[in-house]
Design a protein around this nucleic acid. Structure first.
Lengths: 141, 141, 141, 141
DNA sequence: GTGGTCTAGACCACT
DNA sequence: GTGGTCTAGACCACC
């Protein structure tokens, strides 16, 4: 019941947000299936070495958003039908992220081609989590 | 002696960082040549409608980094030889930025093609300054 | 959580620099171990009778340099692995400092022997902190 | 009538002080003999690429101290009998310089031996000015 | 409680 | 005029 999550206690983004995004990410890549249990607030807190209140904050937001559901007295689970993020918001997010990257790339002195190549590489490189999951599946099918 | 710089005071990133990055950016695209003067702390502050201390903070970081040089009691100038960021570090920065973008794109549920399109668009965007500079050069060759 | 630090507010060098150098010095002599907490900005400020912003400035420079790390909302700590200054740069710094001293000594009309004696005396001087630390260790082993 | 002087227009110490110390230094090492002429304020200013008022300030201080003398309508000269700096002040200066060096050395992570070696080397290395002067003397005895 | 940011205003030394 | 330093005080998000 441990999550493939790591958190950086220094600076941006805030820890609660790192946890929130991390869980969303694990769901997006399929590492956390609908209906699957997530660790208790306390367990995850000791695991990540952060304050339980911080984990609670992230869980609360995820619950409010309908991504997680609490079964009282039982535990917390990924929702059976996690809500889809509205298309408009999704493209806005994407555009902002792209802009941040573009500024960073120009400041780093990269050419258009170098920048694009770096992005392609980052997109193609299967995430550690995904590979880890496939590995696990092979072991415990 | 006015700079093609605008800042968003509603923070995130902080104003001083927006100024720092902005100046670096203007140098990177050639809108600010080595040896060229930059506006005085006070001038830029009134121009951007921020506190002089905020501009001073940005300028000082740039000076510490060797991007700007101060001639005491005279003014501040772009360094004749702005420090070249070591190639290794540059590609590392680029790779990290690309990775951050890739994660954001995956979380936003974007496909590989959507992600790349967004980046291409963002890269073609911030040429406002460049076009402005080329225009100026055509006028006063 | 009080630091063996004193500053001279009559400037030269500026207070924030005195604090920065002081912390570096305490780490260098081992009075501040890796991972150890440093006083909060406010605590040190009241202790030194200076404005919190002044301490914050010093701490932030040290954080930027990787000497200190911030745990958000928690506190500030000495980095586990304080950055090693590259050997080349270290000897360069040392050589420059030595050269500055040599010039000053010549200007003061000192002989070679007088100059060396002054340096030996100065080197044996700032062991106040070290002795204090050893004393503490003997008390609480 | 050009002086072996260079100044750094950035930061500490102030330019006028660099000039003042520089002239004192040239006299101390014998590169400027008693009675020898020094360049005019204007000439030195254009030579060093600084504001004439800055050179004037240095010359004024040196004149006040009796190190230089003005012969009206003629020029400025090194005093025939440059005043000796009081012994007490000299040793104070030396001690301060030694202390600054010691702090810098410790912060640079140098051992006592390394620090002393660096100073010895700096003291033994005949200054560029001295060598230059000897060379000149051989050419025009 | 923690650090981070910003403003307003003052004072200083240097050119 | 220039940049540099410092204070006092406010507000914010985070843990």
């Amino acid at each position: 019941m441990t999550l493939r999550l790591r958190v950086d206690p220094s600076s941006e983004p805030p820890i609660w947000r790192q946890i929130e995004d991390g869980v969303r990410h694990l769901i997006a890549i399929g590492a956390l299936a609908p209906g699957a249990p997530v660790p208790s607030v306390r367990a995850l807190a000791t695991d990540l070495v952060v304050n339980p209140a911080t984990v609670a904050r992230a869980y609360q937001r995820l619950t409010d958003a309908g991504v997680l559901v609490v079964r009282r007295g039982d535990g917390t689970y990924v929702a059976e039908k996690p809500p889809v993020v509205p298309r408009a918001e999704r493209t806005r997010t994407l555009r902002e992220a792209a802009h941040r990257f573009a500024v960073a790339a120009v400041n780093a002195g990269a050419t258009r081609e170098e920048a694009l190549a770096a992005v392609e590489q980052a997109l193609d490189q299967p995430s550690r989590e995904k590979r880890a999951k496939e590995h696990e599946e092979r072991r415990t099918p």
